[in-house]
Design a protein around this nucleic acid. Structure first.
Lengths: 341, 341
DNA sequence: AAGGGAAATGGTAGCGCTACCAAGATCGCG
DNA sequence: CGCGATCTTGGTAGCGCTACCATTTCCCTT
């Protein structure tokens, strides 16, 4: 009958450290969590014992004992998408020197998948949850309200936050870029959209509103697909759009990948940009400014949203409730050569 | 003196489910993990109780009790980079219906950061670890050998795997594309590199070997920076390279972002591609085939590497040791318009 | 000098789950 | 029909850590 080491792989525990340092286990625990509350002398002994034993804290045990994990659960619809890659980078940088960990889940733009992931994450009792958009299912909302931890919805704003929210209006983004195209003198302005998730739908709504306002809307101008966005898809959709409406003189693409595809296709087909065709994208990827001609786009503060979302979550974890639960970051229309007619 | 609910937020536990279903707690635990080992009748009662109580398994408690978390720790050098985004997508898809979770860490191309993250991840007792490249520090290697779980190094191969390895030779990739440029008739072939992490260094080594073999190498042909890669950086570096060597007639870019930047700059400066300047990239992003002209690149099976890495890890977790510890996926040279002279 | 309070340290009792073992029920086979 | 093998179920005892409370020591007041 082995007395100890029945299961754990024999890794040193906090008790081993305590024995070696000649202190109580709880003091080691404290030295690790709140060094200020332990005398310098003991702290040094403990640090030494930790180093000598190669002790590593068992996060699972800590999470169980303290009924919460130092984890922020993050749900994004895609990781392949540059847009969310920037957000995630901002989230990471927002962590700073906190001992929080990020656990990223990929919803693949599916509300049900989001529910499933949420279920799993909540089982870890995260310190906070960050999720994308405002179109959670009723079940997801219920789970989150129940969870009792700060929740930050990002990339979009709306009137009914689960808890907190930081982002911008996609309707206004779509409207702004479309108005710009109208002002530039374009008249047959197409919309090209891939994926057509709720945010894309709202960009389309903004586009439509702007065109209707000017009496220029025509359903045939809209070319969309639910297939995932890509540069090659931009080419395909542009060809379709042009076949449908040969008088097309501009396109607003629901994201920059598509816009780049349209540009390449125009180059290939010798359609002058911006003379013959105006092109505008959305998100303002770094590439848009370098393209030839450079491409008009809507700059969205993705990295910043990530950073600030974590800052909001950290403040809320610390008990500081913000006076403003919904933060509108706005966006910036970047006028470039591709629409300078 | 409250008898129960001292800490946990009052969420139902496995004991609550057991009481409601009229069975022992351990039977509930089994029904959740190995449904086949519980009679149909009890299983249905338990499922019902779970649903009614809204029971969610506490992963921390499970991990503590079973001394391992159903987690695969993944370390990648960057999340913003399309290349690793594809790998991560493959990893996710490789998970399939297993109950494994992915925990992603971002090393920012730093060995020390990798060590730090590894330390944290090991504290969670992951079921497996996946990490990028073959240049881990001695400390990292030691930690991993100690950890006693399967380890998969990805995206590159070498002769001294920590455990398992899947990827391809970056030296050969660089050599192949450079030879192609030589065969296409280019003579003053530049190398443009950003970041210059170890894999980029090895691509450069392959480039150099190919040029030396042909008696064409010249140090001034190499233009690199440690700054992170971007399309605009491709433009800058190309300008620098051209200023240094005005007779430059081709460039091999250590990745596709740079190559696109070079293409845009050539368009802007009215340098004919491939006539005046040949361009080749690395990784074969989807965009390369759509660009005008389309850009030669080295296709790397990133998504596939992700999937197969998880498959290898899962097999190893299940106790199946592969006969082949190092898997060379190879790569494919995609010859396109940008080098078709 | 007595009293009050803060700071430093430790002991006890779980957190919610599962490994391990035991025991009863069922079955097959000679 | 007896006996071992298999299946199903349950009890006990932790996993490694921390919340909660108790204790001791040392100041600082008054």
């Amino acid at each position: 009958m082995r007395p100890r080491t029945r299961r754990g792989g024999g890794r040193p525990t906090i008790a081993d450290v305590a024995r070696k340092a000649g202190v109580g286990a709880i003091t080691v625990s404290r030295a690790l969590r709140e060094p200020d509350r332990v005398s310098r002398e003991l702290r040094e002994q403990i640090d030494k014992a930790v180093a000598e034993l190669g002790y590593v804290l068992d996060r699972n045990a800590r999470a169980l004992a303290s009924a919460r994990a130092d984890v922020v659960a993050v749900l994004v619809p895609s990781l392949t998408n540059n847009v969310f890659a920037d957000v995630v980078r901002g989230l990471y940088d927002g962590l700073g020197d906190s001992h929080l960990q990020l656990h990223i889940g990929n919803t693949h733009y599916s509300g049900l998948e989001e529910e499933r992931l949420l279920q799993g994450f909540i089982g870890q009792r995260p310190s906070a949850v960050v999720l994308s958009g405002i179109d959670q299912t009723a079940t997801s909302r219920a789970i989150l309200k129940e969870a009792g931890c700060p929740v930050v919805q990002i990339m979009e704003i709306g009137t009914d936050p689960i808890d907190m929210m930081i982002g911008f209006s996609h309707v206004e983004g779509g409207r702004a870029v479309t108005r710009h195209l109208i002002e530039a003198g374009y008249r047959r302005i197409g919309f090209i959209g891939a994926r057509m998730d709720p945010r894309s739908q709202r960009r389309l709504a903004g586009y439509r509103a702007a065109l209707e306002e000017a009496g220029l809307f025509d359903l045939r101008l809209v070319t969309t697909t639910t297939a995932p966005s890509s540069v090659s898809l931009g080419r395909e959709l542009f060809r379709d759009a042009l076949a449908k409406v040969p008088t097309l003189d501009a396109v607003f693409c629901n994201n920059d990948d598509l816009a780049v595809g349209v540009l390449f296709e125009c180059n290939r087909a010798a359609l002058a940009v911006p003379g013959k065709i105006g092109i505008a994208g959305f998100n303002d990827l770094e590439m848009m400014d370098v393209a030839y001609p450079s491409i008009t786009s809507v700059r969205t503060p993705r990295y910043d949203i990530g950073r600030r979302a974590i800052a909001m979550a950290r403040a809320a974890i610390a008990g500081e409730r913000p006076e403003q639960r919904v933060v509108d970051t706005g966006f910036e229309l970047m006028r470039r050569e591709s629409t300078a007619r």
